[in-house]
Design a protein around this nucleic acid. Structure first.
Lengths: 221, 221
DNA sequence: CGACTTGTTGAGTGAACTCAAGGAGGGTGG
DNA sequence: CCACCCTCCTTGAGTTCACTCAACAAGTCG
């Protein structure tokens, strides 16, 4: 993967060169080590982040410590939209992460002044909403096996340039389990079942999606 | 509730009079009877709807007939964002419904030309996203009792001018169950448990939220 | 008045959860 | 280089709780 930075990943196709320059100018490049917290739920949101490299776990906490992993952000994603006085979710680096940091107020103002930028944000929010609805359907209605296959397919689809069958899962089993709303033990057993049925083949952090028929979800592309 | 139509409910505060007039002009007032289908998942999305009066059940279907209720749309809500060649969800009227119908392409174009309108859409999408993330947390992590209380609180908060304790639930138990990802029987029993604990009091379709402490979720208002 | 839908209750099963222990890898320090 | 620790994953055993199946009550509509 070439080392593109966030503004390019996010807005290269839709912003004109002046807007792109402005966006680059607003961004500060920052790095995070594996596991490091990027955003803390409840804190005042003075800045927001756009992901350049790596994977970020985005989750929401309950008062008693239980938490749910909402999504795994990939390069080109905003970790969180620049709305709201405070962060309403937490984010941690999975492996090494590079990101562009923006002052929330500055980014917000830039969005207000640039139609292209606002359109981009709307597109991003719309797409996130669609994905989150798909996940909700999965969470609410599917068996663990269906959930896991749906997750693997969705993850493959989001990975850059990977028409292949083998996908890499950099996040921990625990995180996947917390994403799918099941206990880690259940996830392990579900992986086992899918492998036993020869639907997938597990090779450490990589999984070969042997014969999962593709495509689901609406308005792809 | 005064009979405001959708454009007013949605954009009165943020659009100038010219934009509001334009939006009214694009809208056709339509009515639906109880249970009538408004939008069908998978169909070509030639038009989109904004809700003026009543409640709309918005759901997503699985191939085998299982379905999940994503949300209950209220007056002022769009049923679906005007993106995507095809509808990616279904919508049915709960009780009598009045709505504004827009030609998707016309509304889309108007959004493109009006900054205020685009900002409104972005706000709406952002808010929907936040809500859907809250629901995901609830679906993935909570017990049925917690889910139901969270639903009742969230519903109360969304209802217009209802600081009171009694909320009306116009949707069927089945729909609530499908929204919370549980079987209808489980929902009934959960209602029973909450009543037994004197947390709520059930009066037909109305529920008195006796002593549920309020407020949760981030960036309220 | 009768058919149908919707909500409630009961009984029994099964699947996912909890608790607990046993590897397997990775990193650190002696 | 090896020993050790620690975290992560996996496996096992037992239990709980939500689901399924079924019957019944209560409205609703023709």
């Amino acid at each position: 993967m070439p080392l593109a930075t966030f503004p390019d990943l996010f807005g290269k196709t839709a912003l004109n060169s002046r807007e792109l320059r402005k966006l680059r100018q607003l961004a500060t490049q920052v790095r995070f080590r594996s596991g490091q917290q990027i955003v803390a739920e409840g804190e005042v949101a003075t800045e927001v982040y756009g992901l350049s490299r790596g994977v970020v776990r985005v989750c929401k906490k309950l008062a008693d410590g239980r938490h749910h992993v909402l999504r795994f952000a990939l390069p080109g994603d905003f970790v969180e939209l620049p709305r709201g006085e405070r962060h309403c979710l937490s984010a941690n680096a999975i492996g090494a992460v590079s990101a562009s940091r923006f002052a929330r107020s500055e980014l917000f103002e830039f969005i207000e002044t640039s139609r292209n930028m606002m359109r981009l944000m709307l597109d991003f929010a719309t797409e996130e909403l669609r994905r989150s609805q798909d996940l909700m359907l999965s969470l609410g209605r599917n068996t663990p096996e269906e959930q896991l296959t749906a997750f693997l397919l969705g993850w493959r689809k989001r990975l850059p340039r990977r028409p292949g069958r083998v996908v890499s899962l950099p996040m921990s089993r625990r995180d996947i389990a917390a994403h799918l709303g099941m206990a880690p033990e259940t996830l392990t057993r579900t992986f086992g079942k899918l492998q036993q049925k020869e639907i997938i083949h597990i090779m450490g952090d990589d999984v070969d999606l042997l014969e999962i028929g593709q495509s689901r979800g609406c308005a792809k592309g």
